[in-house]
Simulated scan of single mutants.
Amino acid sequence: MTNTLIAPPRGFEISEFEARTEKLQARMAEQQIDAVFLTTEPEFRYFSGFKSQFWESPTRPWFLVVPASGKPIAVVPEIGAAGLHQTWIDDVRSWPSPRPEDDGISLLADTLAACATRHGRIGAMLGPETHLRMPAANFAALQDRLSQHVLVDVSLIIRELRSVKSEAEIAKIRFACEVTAAGFDYLLEHLRLGMTEREACKAMHLEMLRLGADACPYLISASGQGGYDNIIMGPTDRELGNGDVLIIDTGATFDGYFSDFDRNYAFGRGDALATRAYEAVYQSTEAGLSVAAPGRTTGEVWQAMWDVLEQAGALGNDVGRMGHGLGMQLTEWPSNVPDGNVVLKPGMILTLEPGMTFAPGKMMVHEENILITEEGCEMLHKRAWSELPVIS
């Protein structure tokens, strides 16, 4: 029987963009910030609704200015002006890009200066895990043109706003998760000894597209005898044989929102150490699920998961965190880290990603996607198998 999934509506109501902008402006007022300018695709899309594959090209910069009140102002290459006029944005200012000698910098500087006349403070994404998506020389030129103003970091404000999802955002992420979970189930029925990692990943990729995913920009795998020691590469043309364990870690998208989780498969026989490690990461996830709730912290979630892994004999965890935020990007703020102090709120979407080195050179990682609710948390997709599946 062919699986069918019902996709939620695409896009958002204008009221959603109005609410996002008003929340940012309220935070700006608290810090006496006159204007914020945004340069990266997720933030630009979050406040404008402008969704385009043209961001794949590094040639042209794009800017969105959020003033202290009123709608955002788009400062964009002429090639994008028509697309911006299809959004809720009214004020679209453009220049003939590419123009390396002044690729929108004077237009952006004039726009910001006109908005920042009260406090002289302008915000930008300047913190960890951010970038400005413009040449360094252009940023220096912008700073020079705005030398009478103070540039401040607003990355934490933006992250906090984006971390709590609306019902419409949750529906898109849930669908992306359901598609991915169904893809893993499909693979469980179609994996065979002798297949290559690449063949396995391609089969899953095609199934997720068939089920309704827009794309699968992130799909990696690793395999090895009784485990694996590198989970960020691949897939490769390595054939899967007796005693191998395969992990596939993937993120599918729907309407610009990601899923991100993985599953593990054993081939021919279940290695005893790998089987025990699988049981440990499964129980570690259970511990994370029991703790993830409003008022708890990311550090508490990490500790609950690590306690289980440590008791199971984990030799270490080398990835630095055990889960993260999820949404318009594959990985978002916050991270589940030791002593993490980010307080969980209803509407946050996180991954639980316990991982352990269970033998020298061998790892086991498990990842699920959850929504923080008023009462605790809920899975956004079908839970992983409680036992390590064996492909014969």
Rank of each mutant, 00 (worst) to 15 (best):
A359D: 09
F258I: 00
D153L: 12
G376K: 06
E367T: 14
G325P: 12
S284Q: 02
K165V: 05
G234K: 05
G226K: 03
S221R: 10
A137H: 11
D214I: 10
G49S: 12
I122N: 00
A266G: 09
L219D: 04
I372T: 08
L132A: 12
V245S: 11
A113Y: 04
R276E: 12
G194T: 00
A215G: 08
M364E: 10
W62V: 02
Q329Y: 03
P346E: 11
W306A: 03
A168W: 00
E101D: 15
R276C: 05
Y278F: 04
E169A: 10
K71H: 14
I89L: 08
G270P: 09
T275A: 13
S386L: 13
M363A: 07
Q86R: 14
L211T: 02
V150F: 01
A213R: 02
G123Q: 01
E160C: 08
P217W: 07
T21L: 07
R60K: 08
I14F: 14
A200W: 06
F37T: 01
V154F: 00
Y228G: 02
L126N: 08
A35W: 00
G295K: 13
G295H: 12
L24V: 05
G183D: 01
S147H: 06
R10D: 09
A272Y: 07
R198H: 11
M305D: 03
L193P: 12
E353G: 15
L187N: 09
L156E: 11
Q25W: 13
S97D: 03
A35I: 00
L330M: 08
A213W: 03
W55M: 03
A81P: 07
V342S: 06
N230H: 04
S106Q: 10
